[in-house]
Amino acid sequence: MEKTIKVINELKKKGLINDYAIGGGIGALFYIEPFLTYDLDIFVVLKEEPDKVIIDLSNIYNYLQSKGYKWKGEHILIEGVPVQFIVADELEEEGIKNAKKVRYKGIPTKVLSPEYLIAIFLRTGRKKDIEKVERFFEETKINKRKLRNILKKFNIKWVK
């Protein structure tokens, strides 16, 4: 996966994205016990273009395709890993700003913090997301005050 991360870091170096962080299942996997998942969700912040109504990721995909990476359904296969780029909304953008800086086999990257991952999972609210949230509480340390503040700010409710 280090090759995949290198390619994503290149997108940032080339200015195709402003910033990014790993989220979704792989983001969760960083903190909790390994579980089966298939794609690498990359939340991205693009250059600010306030007048644009439609967000266009063609520059990113054109660049990746020029390097020989191919589509597989909704994902683009980068060095053997199906990657989905998700343009960050307000919550996710704040998550990216506060993401944990980590290294994977020496390659720098960022992973959303557990509090932001939990908030995103709760907002999505599928059964499998809620299961992950419960595992976060069982298996890792959560800053509950930080989580409460995020949930309050973004009006996310957790109904158990």
């Binding site: 996966m1 996997l29 960083f30 903190y31 909790i32 016990e33 390994p34 579980f35 089966l36 998942t37 298939y38 980590v102 994977y104 086999k105 595992r135 069982e138 298996e139 890792t140």
Partner: peptide
């Protein structure tokens, strides 16, 4: 389960590939 959660990221990715 708590110990598995503390494994290095690299090891977890290896486990993930095995699960896949």
């Amino acid at each position: 389960h708590k110990e598995q959660a503390k494994l290095p990221f690299e090891k977890k990715i290896e486990i993930l590939v095995t699960l896949q």
